[in-house]
C-alpha cells in the first residue's frame, strides 16, 4: 500500500514537472517572439537577399500582412514578381499570379518551392505553432543559450521540428536548426538584433541552407508597422481585387 502511494505521488510529481516544463517553454517562446514581432497584427516589409557560394545572387522584396489565427498575406514587390500574392490561412495556401487573376490553391510542398520560401518570410512567431522541452544549455557564438527541442503543433508549419537556442540572459533568439518533414536538417537560422524604435528587435535572419550547401539567404526586416487589413483581405476570393494597400 505504501509503495503504491509512493508511486502515485512520484508519478503526480513527474507530471507536474512536465506540465511546468511545458508552460516554461511556451513562456520562453512568447518572450522570443517579441524580438521578432511585438504585435498581434501588422505589416512587415521584408527584403530577402540570396547568396550562392557567398556571392550575392538575387534580392526580393515582400510586404507581409499578419493577423491572429495564423493568417498572413504576402505581396511580392520585386519587379519580376510584381502582382503575385500568397495567402496563408492556417494550413491552407493560395497563390495568385497576375497573368491569370485566378487564386490557385496550392499544397504545403508547392509553398516551399521557389526562391526564398515564403513560409520563412511569413512566419514571424513560434509561440502559437510550436511546443517542446528544454534539452540543455549550450554556448552559441559566445552567447550562453538555452537549447529547446520544439515540435510543430499543427500540420502546416514549414518546419515540423526546430531546435532553438535562446539567450539565457534575455531569451532573444540566437540560432535555430530547421528540420523538414523527413527530419533532415534543412536550414540553420541565425538572428541578428538591432535597435528599432528604442527596442531590441531581430533585424536580420540569416538562413544557411544545409540541403544545398552553397546557398544562404538573409531576411532583412526593413520595417514593422501595426497597419492592418480587414478580414475580407484574408479571403482567397478577395485576391483578385487590386484594392490592397501596398
Amino acid at each position: 500500500m505504501f509503495r503504491r502511494i509512493a508511486f502515485m505521488l512520484l508519478a503526480s510529481a513527474s507530471l507536474a514537472v512536465v506540465a511546468a516544463e511545458d508552460g516554461k517553454v511556451k513562456s520562453l517562446l512568447k518572450q522570443a517572439d517579441v524580438y521578432r514581432l511585438a504585435m498581434e497584427s501588422g505589416r512587415v516589409e521584408t527584403e530577402v537577399r540570396t547568396f550562392k557560394a557567398g556571392v550575392p545572387d538575387k534580392t526580393r522584396l515582400y510586404a507581409v500582412y499578419l493577423k491572429p489565427g495564423h493568417r498572413s498575406l504576402v505581396l511580392f514587390r520585386t519587379a519580376s514578381e510584381r502582382g503575385q500574392k500568397m495567402l496563408m490561412l492556417g494550413d491552407d495556401y493560395w497563390l495568385m499570379m497576375p497573368s491569370s487573376q485566378r487564386p490557385l490553391r496550392i499544397t504545403a510542398m508547392q509553398k516551399l518551392l521557389g526562391e526564398a520560401s515564403t513560409g520563412d518570410v511569413a512566419t514571424m512567431t513560434w509561440g502559437e505553432d510550436y511546443d517542446g522541452q528544454q534539452v540543455g544549455e549550450e554556448t552559441v557564438d559566445g552567447v550562453p543559450c538555452l537549447k529547446l527541442d520544439l515540435l510543430g503543433q499543427r500540420k502546416g508549419v514549414s518546419y515540423p521540428r526546430i531546435v532553438l537556442y535562446l539567450a539565457k540572459k534575455d531569451h532573444h533568439p540566437v540560432q535555430a536548426e530547421l528540420y523538414v518533414a523527413s527530419d533532415k536538417l534543412a536550414k540553420l537560422a541565425r538572428f541578428k538584433l538591432g535597435e528599432v524604435d528604442g527596442r531590441k528587435q531581430v533585424t536580420v535572419m540569416t538562413l544557411i541552407d544545409h540541403l544545398q550547401k552553397e546557398r544562404s539567404t538573409e531576411v532583412h526586416y526593413l520595417s514593422r508597422t501595426d497597419k492592418t487589413l480587414s478580414d475580407d483581405y484574408f479571403n482567397p476570393a478577395f485576391l483578385v481585387r487590386a484594392d490592397l494597400t501596398q
Binding site: 487573376q101 490557385l104 490553391r105 481585387r241 487590386a242
Partner: peptide
C-alpha cells in the same frame, strides 16, 4: 483598366478586367 471601390459597405469593380476562373 478597372477600378475597385466600395460604396455603402459593398464592394464593386468596374472597367475592363481579366475574369479567369476554374481550377
Amino acid at each position: 483598366a478597372f477600378a475597385d471601390f466600395s460604396a455603402g459597405g459593398e464592394r464593386f469593380t468596374a472597367g475592363k478586367k481579366v475574369l479567369s476562373g476554374d481550377v
